[in-house]
Amino acid sequence: MTDHNIRFSASSFAEQRNFKLMELPAELCKLMEEALLSKGSSGFHIKGSSSDDAVLCTQDKTYIIRSVSLSNSILVVTSPPDSDISLEPNESGVIIRDQINEILELTQAIPKLHQLNSLLRGKEYGEDEEDNEDFQDVQVRECTVSLVSHWSMFSKKFTYANAQAMIQASEEELNRGLRERRILQINDSLRPISSAYLTKIIQFILNSLTALSLNHASVPVEKLSTALVDDHDVPRIVSVQVMSWFGDIGDIDGRWKMDVDAVVKEAGLGILKESKDKSLDQEDFISSWKELVGEKFASAVSLDLLAGNYLITPAGPYSIHEVLKYFPVSSLPVDPAQRFADLFLTRRKWKNEDIVPFLSDIAVNSKERDKMLLKYARATTDSQGLWYTARAQYNG
């Protein structure tokens, strides 16, 4: 056994608590090893203000960083410097630099994309928008203190760079969040498009495909965007981004392959949102939806596309007739306990297939979602299937 001469560093007091030990999950270890072998950047970024829980972001995932206490301390040691001549020849020594009593643990988490809603409130892009670089100065309300401290509440523009710096999300998650929230990038500003205008653009696109006899699986982007400018005054910068949300645009041939289900879904959402303050007869809604998308795409219309955006309820206390009501998952709290409280105040009892779509945005995967259901709900089974009721009692 080799003997070691152990001593404390001369600067051990100054270095105390300067070292942190982080435990990396297997997938992050692999990324780090690949970066070391290629001598490139690991692509890891720590995000969070002083009032936030810090997160570590890779290119496509977000991990929350938590401190876990250790039952046994760990010493950080190094070899003595070459200038240390106090050691005897062939004598081995180590220098104690710090003592660690905790490790940093990483757990994959949902990105905090909901903050975009507050930061972009009042900056909606609508049909009557003037296409220039001078936008009305709108005060952003309901921002958290930590976000406001990083960005002026009176800023005229909220840019993609602002979002990268302030939103706790990986770049891939942020880009996906901007698409799913239908947020345009115009004149270096992020602008959520109004639902009514987006529904009109969807209808313009579908009508133009028919009028120009274009195959929806291979649409010349330039031809369609020109038609939308000439016939409906939809700016190219808007129409091309809308196309990218609902399909793929080829980098080489400049052709758009339309995602039929995505377009049909958005058309149905537009009708639901317009009627958010009233209930809709199911048959009338389906009929209006099919009329909006046209005969060619009517076969794609299905309520399954709108899961997580509506509820089916009886038309009255003694009625067997059912109606649709707009109930979007985006309107619910992001905190799991509050989410379940709202859901069980809305309905005392949920079928498994009905409640699952309203949990998709607060769970990393189905395993985490099932853990939440076990924690906040009671499961029962009958002839109709699996049902959930609240573990806690909520007064409606």
Rank of each mutant, 00 (worst) to 15 (best):
N309L: 06
L272N: 01
E173N: 10
V234P: 09
D230H: 12
R348Q: 08
A390Q: 01
L147Q: 00
D52C: 14
E129G: 05
G385P: 01
D60L: 07
H45N: 08
V68A: 11
K123M: 14
N72E: 15
S9Y: 13
V76G: 09
S366Y: 07
V334A: 08
D82L: 10
T107R: 14
S49E: 07
W245R: 11
Y125A: 14
L228Q: 03
L280S: 09
I96H: 06
R191Q: 09
I46P: 08
D60M: 08
A298V: 00
A337W: 02
V301M: 03
F246H: 13
K367E: 10
S152A: 13
G294D: 01
I85K: 12
G43R: 03
Q185H: 07
A54N: 03
E295S: 13
M22Q: 08
L198P: 05
K290M: 05
T58L: 05
A217W: 09
W350Y: 06
K371L: 12
T346I: 00
L28E: 02
E34C: 07
T313L: 14
H45V: 15
D281N: 12
K156H: 11
E34D: 14
Y125Q: 10
A217S: 15
D281P: 02
V242S: 08
S155Y: 01
L56S: 10
L374M: 09
K123Y: 12
F340C: 02
L303R: 04
M243Y: 04
M243I: 07
